[in-house]
Design a protein around this nucleic acid. Structure first.
Lengths: 344, 344
DNA sequence: GTGAAAGCGCTAACAG
DNA sequence: CTGTTAGCGCTTTCAC
């Protein structure tokens, strides 16, 4: 933008009014006579004038901008979350500054960048903040809402779903199906969502008198989950491999199913029953038909965005931690164990 | 952001230097003595000072911000495009303003918003601009690059792939497999990508002495494509329904396959061979194993972003229209026709 | 209702 | 190298 731009002064000159009259004409709340506004608008049209948002932000000290921070869009569940939340905020008249968390994990720079950019709020999707980072942003007076991840810092609002309950259900359900060797495929092990799902799962198994048969890590990613599946099912004997698996998200659950069927000649659900977490759109497609824990996406977004707006409009509002219930969706990737020839 | 913020003046006072010394200390290019910078930085740290990006933008007349406009992230191909491009631009030190094209199609407001927000460039993903809109942005001096869609306006740079060739290949390939009733599933009929793919497809069929057997529309969406599949294969007799289908993108191709197998009891590729367009990651998964035309995504992004940066740095650079080659990926969703009992 | 004047927080000459 | 001085384009008192 080197080219000199048309300013309100130029418009004022052409319209034969003062510069402030131009400003008023473009601000719905101000009182201007219909006549003046008309003159101004006409001059503005002729010159192709558009108010400079940056200058306005500087003086009003409000950027009408919200930062959205996300980790990766490879997971359709997050792509969906991002789109829904963004559209809503956009509709509320906010601009959205998009930040991707660097894959090398150097998140401090992003936090710094966030603060400098004068956003009025921050919406974090599946991003784990350290206490330090969370405090830094919050202390700076920028409201933050985290969706689908938590941080041990009560100064920040969080909206998540009941990961523990979901995991618990998965554990009990698979055991109740008669499965004896139930494995867990972790996401990012240290992420709060993973820890909660894992703990819930183990508790659920324990309630049925079982323990976790095998454990591996897939970082919430498709490819990593395929690799994990190869490791988990590497045994020679069928009785040494899992007969069921709970994956910390749908994307990994699907990866496991694909690998099982394509490379390992195992059937789902007969040889292996699989449960995921999220219920992304794709999980309901017939090819996958994945039993999973449905997160209440729409509700999560609604609550998170309204919470964020609340904090923006009222800096004294207290932070809230919301935990929304998940719903089991039983599909065809799980079935009771049947005794067949191949089992013996 | 109502709370009064710490300004460079505050820091100057504490550090015992002038306000401009503070400014210089935070600008890598400026010359400041190590001693001064140290004092300033220490004072800044104490106060928690961060330079105000908005004020900086106003005076430098450069926002270091690029707008990214996208249509929908439901299509993983675009989610991928968005993530890749964004990460690159972010790495180049740009901020990204994210705009979703409204679904009601009222794109003029977004264009206006775009211009007001003082972005230095606009990257459009799969967005169709009218000539008028394109001209409006371009005339305002904001460089625009469109990925994967074209507009009849030579003032704008565009990066796309060879849709016509891709369609042509699909048409010939399916015909060469011995398929006799080849259908086309359109995306958004009036979108340029769709038109080019469709024309190429028809030309390819013509080269093999065939014409398009049936035609339907799926708007590039999964659900719409399922509906279209139901219509396309509604005939009582096998010989009245298609034995092959070319969909204008992978998402729709997959939707068709899912519907065929799950609801219509038709097998892929034997009863129906299917070809898509894009080659998104999911298409290679064993469940789908979709034959498709691979778009050179990485290359498209690389060229588009470098083109955009070029235009930003040199406003006189001429717009370019790039058409990159697509590559057929033959997988298991297509196979030669075999004469089987069920055919007679 | 309207114009004049005073900045928002910062960078960029300009002297020294 | 450093401080002083002008603004960037806009909103917002404040008189009239």
């Amino acid at each position: 933008m080197k080219r000199k731009s048309i300013t309100s002064r130029d418009v004022a000159l052409l319209a034969g009014v003062s510069q402030s009259a131009v400003s008023r004409s473009f601000s719905p709340a101000s009182s201007v006579s219909e006549k003046t506004r008309k003159k101004v608008m006409e001059a503005a049209r002729q010159l192709g004038y558009r108010p400079n948002t940056i200058a306005r932000s500087l003086i009003t000290r409000s950027s009408r901008t919200i930062a959205v921070v996300t980790y990766s869009l490879q997971n359709p569940f997050y792509a969906y979350l991002l789109e829904k939340a963004s559209r809503f905020l956009q509709q509320q008249g906010y601009h959205l500054l998009l930040f991707f968390a660097p894959q090398n994990g150097d998140f401090d720079m992003v936090v710094d960048d966030l603060i400098r950019s004068q956003v009025e709020g921050v919406l974090m999707l599946a991003i784990t903040l350290t206490q330090h980072q969370a405090a830094e942003v919050a202390d700076f007076g920028i409201p933050v809402v985290i969706i689908n991840r938590t941080v041990e810092y009560s100064g920040i609002s969080q909206v998540g779903s009941d990961n523990f309950q979901g995991g618990y259900w998965a554990g009990r359900y698979l055991a109740s199906l008669g499965r004896q060797r139930i494995a867990y495929l972790a996401g990012i092990p240290e992420s709060t969502t993973n820890r909660q799902r894992e703990e819930g799962f183990k508790a659920g198994l324990a309630a049925e008198g079982q323990t976790c048969f095998l454990y591996d890590v897939g970082h919430y990613r498709y490819d990593d989950a395929c690799d994990a599946a190869r490791r988990l099912f590497a045994a020679r004997q069928r009785e040494d491999m899992p007969d069921a698996l709970f994956a910390a998200n749908d994307l990994m659950a699907i990866a496991v199913m694909e690998t099982l069927r394509d490379e390992l000649n195992l059937t789902v659900p007969d040889n292996v029953s699989v449960v995921g977490f999220d219920d992304m759109a794709m999980s309901a497609w017939p090819s996958h038909s994945l039993t999973t824990l449905q997160q209440p996406v729409e509700q999560m977004i609604a609550r998170a965005t309204e919470l964020l707006l609340k904090h923006i409009n009222n800096p004294d509002a207290l932070p809230e931690q919301l935990v929304l219930p998940v719903t089991p969706r039983i599909r065809q990737s799980t079935a009771p164990t049947v005794l067949s020839k191949s089992t013996y």
